[in-house]
Amino acid sequence: MYIGEYLFWFSSAIKTATRKKLKMGYFSGDMKLSEVAKDYTKESVSNNPRPIGPYYAYNDRYLEIRGGMFENFRGIITWISFAIFFIIASGGYFALKVALKLYNNEWDNYKIGSGIFAMVFFAIIFLVSTYLCIRYFRYICRLELFTLRHIRVRFNRVTRQVYVQRPKYCGGTAVFKWEHIMPANFGETGSDMGGTNLVNVFSFHPYKTGFPVAQSVGVGKNTYDPQDYKDEWEFIRRYMEDGPQNLPKPRLSTHLPMPFHGIEGHMSPMIHLVKNNPSVIIILMLIPVFLILLPFYTVGYFISECLCWQPRWPKVIRQAGKLGKPLPKETTLSDYPPDVQKAILDSSQEWGVIDDETGELIDYGQFKRPKKKASRKRKTKIAKQAEKPIKESSED
């Protein structure tokens, strides 16, 4: 469920030693100055603002919508986790059962050797699988189990801030200015994402926030229609800029686990597939998916919701916008442990800003790293330009 958020944060906060060990390079997140400097909160992109949701709160002070990417795949990791837990439980159960039989002399004398072998065998399975689960698999298990039930994103129109509630291993709760938000699925910062079955993604670039790396959050439901992205963004934009007046009131969803929550996320891809390929073969292929895999995913989704919890927002965020209450502090580098700060600073070189006219990287105070990167580019460019006239003159 939190695979997208985890991988994005992991790539931004990975330690230098771990990066070298995994042989991970740095990707180029360079963007044009005109893209990152623009205030996207002032431009209308749709004449049909719609609250697609799901929304958890909506009033004169704030609206709250579900966040998180790949929510429609929730349930797969749950079943994988249960399979791992079953191996651990089975190994421990049989090892203990054989040990009790040996202790109570319930084995025949000529079978004691085989009993000891069975006890040792199951004990090894139990210990090895337990170690692997604690050492490695717990990082995968927590993406769907024993964690936050949903990522929530709150837009407070009084404080003009955006609050993102995430697990700590995905960056934790973050506070951003409303003016710093950038739609990523359409417009100048993105492309037509129609047909990709993604949620609406918003980003906060370091050029605006001052945070060393960019942060992103997906909101709402997955969709194949690019217009849905624009309509939902327009609904949120008008709410923040003009208020809830003249806007359709969204239907509020519950935080509690419900058996039908997982159905829609898996039904939409099948409906989209049938609409685009209305053939008998496709329909016959979808019958076992509908009868077997859909209940499988749906039950896994429900179990995952039941084994998670939805915590309250911090008090300063709950009271934000009320008369006389303090303004929540924006997220800064100092909010993280020293080792994470160092890793984030090391990843800051990935987020360069390119001058539209010269095509060179701009040093916007991003901890001097982009400046070094730009100087190498400029040297290469100058060297190539210097060689070109020489070759032409030699040919002449």
Rank of each mutant, 00 (worst) to 15 (best):
G4H: 11
L7T: 09
S28V: 09
Y40I: 10
V45N: 01
Y56Q: 07
E71S: 12
T78Q: 08
Y93K: 05
V98C: 08
L100W: 11
K101S: 15
K101T: 10
K101A: 13
N104S: 09
M119V: 07
F121V: 08
F137V: 04
Y139F: 11
Y139P: 02
Y139G: 12
L148P: 01
R149K: 12
P167A: 08
W178T: 04
H180W: 09
P183S: 09
M193W: 04
G194I: 07
V201A: 09
F204S: 01
H205R: 05
P212M: 12
V217R: 00
V219I: 15
D225M: 06
Q227G: 06
F235E: 01
I236N: 00
R237P: 00
R238V: 11
R238D: 11
P257R: 02
G265M: 04
N277K: 13
P278W: 13
M285D: 03
V289W: 01
V289I: 10
V289Q: 11
Y301D: 14
L307G: 04
P311N: 04
R318H: 12
A320N: 04
L323C: 05
G324D: 11
L327G: 01
P337E: 06
A343G: 07
L345I: 13
S347D: 14
G352M: 10
D356V: 12
L361C: 04
G365Q: 08
F367D: 02
T380C: 11
T380M: 15
